[in-house]
Amino acid sequence: MWWKSLSVVILVYVILAGMLVPLKPGITHISPQTAKSGSAVTIQFHGYNSFYTRSEASGIRVWLEFDSLHALAGQDIRVLSDTAIEATFQMPPLLPQSSRSVLLNAIVDHPSDGVSLLPGALQLTLDTAPATSPATASWSLNPVIDLHIKSDFSFPYRNVIYESIRNTYFHVPMWFVLMFLFIASVYFSVRYLFDPKPDFDRKAAGYAETGLLFGGLGLVTGMLWAHYAWGAAWSNDIKQLMTAVALLIYLAYFILRRSFDEPEKGARLAAVYNIFAFASLVPLLYIVPRMFASLHPGATGNPAFGSEDLDNTMRLVFYPSIIGFSLLGFWIAELRIRYKRVEDRAMGLD
């Protein structure tokens, strides 16, 4: 059927685009990462996916930024390689706020690469010794302006997760497929209660089973990603806990189905249980996680994904991915339902 071929075409596109489109350039780290006020420091900026040599050094600008009004511009910028720039900074004798130390963001503005930023890159501590840098060094002389904002076809660069931002197209759609399949399942459970045809029961069970498969895949892929992004596969994050509870509730649905000798009685009770399971799924997946702090992006408040987490380039892969995996999920569910129909007919139950 046409939608099955469509799912294959979309998934091939998603895997190719999701793996091949490059990341925007970023800054992995700078060295040194600490400095004292009132000194002159030479700092190296280490880029990721950057092509610093593609432009004249005079066009490149670097800053250590405290906020939009307070920033230090780097002097004598030297391009060492495609992924390293060196610049000298005159640290002013005073900090922009009255504290012992401040964290500064590193910014590189490149004519062809565009702008990249590393938050909290350098810790500047207040030094009470006499200043060696000239008195002209000031926080407000060189504001961060005239940036080269690029809007090419590339995915955003994020520290810590780096390339694994591409998992957005493979891990997140699992939960969308789970939701669509569970909606289909509860729809047929309700229809079964009004009109006890065996076909409705088979559909409810088939969609729920496939939904559980995708839920399990979402959980396992999430654990692999979490191991490398959060440091531990399971960190009792609110979303991890609530989805595990939701999957266990649906697991109980299958145990309930099988614990009756009379298939009709089991089907009726399972249909009722499915409605309750679905009713608990919505708060477990969509309401409770938003009320607590979470390691997941956009956990507190709506929507689940901010524009920070999903830019327009990612949308071009993310939305097709949801459609592709959903069609695949319904395809697998259809096979399961057709199998069950044949089995029931063979056993003389339908």
Binding site: L23, E163, S164, N167, F170, L217
Partner: peptide, 13 residues
């Protein structure tokens, strides 16, 4: 850049 995490996720699916 942790690209093999993505490969692992696709492999698991």
């Amino acid at each position: 850049g942790k690209i093999y995490v993505v490969v692992g996720v696709i492999g698991l699916i």
